[in-house]
Structure formats: structure tokens, C-alpha cells
């Protein structure tokens, strides 16, 4: 999923403390997907309530999100809107792969238990129920949700450019192509499992001497959520090609690439990244969590441990005191 340009990026490690006081626009689908694929029992079964409904996403939201709130990090969850037609094809392929993974997981549970987790992860999927439940819990927690016009990452990038947030949080790099000045990965990972890392668009542009437009062309050559890319071209060779020829048009003309299969829609895709549809009228308000509603929803409806939920809520309410890490510039 997402665009595979990781190899030319130089992420900088950071810490939750250093992010205290900052506002993050979270790619909600990406984060929910992380929760659904990682928060699982050892045999790969997701967490479930007594009626057999999946609760991995809710568990992730209440416990991991609490961590961030406690550190003074403000979050806005940005949900995908209508996917573009080009993406629909990719999504189709994904659900095929997911079905395959699900079949293999069922097999592995019996035959190769140690492999089961891997296939289980790949079978994770987000449906409307999951999205609705996530939005309900976030609302009870007082965390704002924003509906994107189309791509969640495009919306999140727009919100950072507009100054409503300071970073986009996602595991994918697409938000850079959508023009996010700063993005962060591993923000919702379990503490001490993965270090949060920040990537800045400007640094990337300066390091390679490319513009955002050229970065988008590189991504299209390699393959994005909207096109498969040219077979055999990885991000390093794409970077070389674009640095030499400066655009896809010229790469095709000068490098004499005969088969443009996989990038034939490059003009449309370029436009998706450079001129994305965004929702310009959204509201962002952080509210005090509604303790009763959270408990009713999680403990009564979904069998969460009352004790653990109470503790998480206590931590959030305490974080309302808003402990923020200061920076020393203030005293220099």
C-alpha cells in the first residue's frame, strides 16, 4: 500500500516527548489498518467481544491514542472519502490478495501455527462497521474527526499546509506527494517497539535536488495506489531518470522507454497528487472525553475490561492538564 519511495528518504528519529504540544493530522484508515493487522492474539485471531465482533481497532484507539494524549500530542483523525476510479482497480487487487491470505491463514492455523500470524495480518480489512465504530469512540473521547473529499492523506496534507496541524501521521509516504511539509511514521506503534521518525519534504527536495512535482513523477514511475508503475524500475533508478530528464514526458522521449504500460495515465495521476480534491469546510474542536459513553460503548457493548478502560480514561483526563515539553530556545 502507498508509494514505495522509502529508499530515498532519510527519516529523523524523534520521541513522543519532543512532539508534546504539537497537533497531528492522523491518516485514520492507515492507523486503523495498523491496529487491525497488529493487535492480534498469538495465533492471528483479532481481538473479539463476546458476540464475535472484532475489537482490535477499538483497543488500539483507546490505549495507544491515550499514550499520545498523555504526552500532550493533539490528534485529528482524517477519514478517506470517495476513492478515485483509478484506485478502485488497486483496491480490487488488494481484496483478492486479502482473500488469498485469509485462506492461507485458515490453513496455517491448523498446519503451521507459527506462520498463521503473518497471513492473519495480511487478511486485515476495514469495513464500514469498523469505520463507524472508530468514529463513535473518537467522538466520545473528544477527538475531532474530519471527512476527506477523497484521499485521507491529501486532506491531512492540506490541513498541515493550512496550519491546522503540524504533521501528517501515516505509515505511507503519500502525504509527501500531496505536499505535506512534514510527516511522521510509527506514531501509534506500541511504545519501545518502533521509534517515531519524522520526514521533511523540504529536506528531501534539497537532498536530491528535486521539486515536489518531480518527486510525484518518480513515484508514478515506481508505482502508486493509482498505477502499477513500470516493471523493473525501482525508486533509485526512477530518481536517476528524473534527475537526468526532469519529467516523465522527457523520460519517455529521451530514454526511449518503449512500453509505457503501467504509467499510461501519468497526467491524471500527477493531477491527483498535485491538485487533489479536498474538503475545505471542516471544524476542529477537542472536547473533554465523555467517560460514561466511553465505558458504556467499550465495556458494556464490547466487553472491554472496566478496570483498564477506567485507567486509560484517568490518564486522558489527567493529560487535560496538558503537560507540554518546552524547548530550550525559549530561554536562549
Amino acid at each position: 500500500m502507498g508509494v514505495n519511495i522509502g529508499a530515498i528518504l532519510e527519516p529523523k528519529e524523534t520521541s513522543l516527548e519532543a512532539l508534546s504540544g504539537k497537533t497531528v493530522a492522523v491518516d485514520a484508515y492507515n492507523t486503523l489498518y495498523q491496529f487491525l493487522s497488529i493487535i492480534r492474539q498469538p495465533d492471528g485471531t483479532p481481538l473479539k467481544d463476546s458476540s464475535g465482533r472484532t475489537t482490535s481497532h477499538l483497543s488500539g484507539l483507546i490505549y495507544r491514542t491515550t499514550n499520545l494524549m498523555e504526552c500532550g500530542i493533539k490528534q485529528i483523525f482524517v477519514f478517506d472519502g470517495k476513492p478515485s476510479e483509478l484506485k478502485a482497480k488497486v483496491i480490487e487487487g488488494r481484496s483478492e490478495r486479502r482473500k488469498e491470505a485469509r485462506r492461507k491463514w485458515e490453513e496455517a492455523k491448523v498446519l503451521l501455527p507459527e506462520e498463521a500470524f503473518k497471513y492473519a495480518r495480511a487478511s486485515a480489512r476495514i469495513d464500514m462497521t469498523i469505520v463507524e465504530e472508530a468514529k463513535r469512540l473518537l467522538t466520545y473521547l473528544g477527538i475531532p474527526c474530519v471527512q476527506a473529499a477523497s484521499e485521507g492523506e491529501a486532506q491531512a496534507a492540506y490541513m498541515v499546509r493550512r496550519g491546522d496541524a503540524e504533521l501528517v501521521s501515516s505509515q505511507d509516504y503519500d502525504s509527501l506527494l500531496f505536499g505535506a511539509p512534514t510527516m511522521i511514521r510509527n506514531l501509534s506503534a506500541a511504545r519501545r517497539k518502533a521509534t517515531p521518525e519524522v520526514i521533511e519534504l523540504k529536506e528531501l527536495e534539497e537532498k536530491h535536488g528535486i521539486t515536489r512535482e518531480e518527486l510525484v513523477d518518480i513515484a508514478i514511475l515506481v508505482g502508486t495506489d493509482f498505477n502499477p508503475g513500470i516493471k523493473g524500475i525501482g525508486v533509485k533508478s526512477a530518481l536517476k531518470l528524473i534527475k537526468r530528464h526532469r519529467s516523465i514526458e522527457k523520460v519517455i522521449a529521451e530514454a526511449k522507454i518503449e512500453k509505457i504500460e503501467g504509467i499510461e495515465n501519468y497526467e491524471i495521476i500527477r493531477n491527483i497528487f498535485l491538485q487533489p480534491d479536498v474538503n475545505e469546510s471542516y471544524e476542529i474542536n477537542w472536547e473533554t472525553p465523555d467517560e460514561e459513553k466511553v465505558k458504556e460503548f467499550l465495556c458494556e457493548e464490547h466487553n472491554f475490561s472496566e478496570e483498564r478502560v477506567s485507567k486509560a480514561l484517568e490518564r486522558i483526563l489527567k493529560s487535560k492538564i496538558n503537560v507540554s515539553q518546552r524547548r530550550i530556545e525559549q530561554w536562549l
Binding site: 516527548e17 508534546s20 487535560k320 492538564i321 496538558n322 503537560v323 507540554s324 515539553q325 518546552r326 524547548r327 530550550i328 525559549q330 530561554w331
Partner: peptide, 10 residues
């Protein structure tokens, strides 16, 4: 070593 504090507000 100089270390900036964490400050409780609100």
C-alpha cells in the same frame, strides 16, 4: 547539561 522543563498548563 541544560534541560527544558515540561510544563503543566490549563
Amino acid at each position: 547539561y541544560l534541560l527544558a522543563p515540561r510544563i503543566e498548563s490549563e
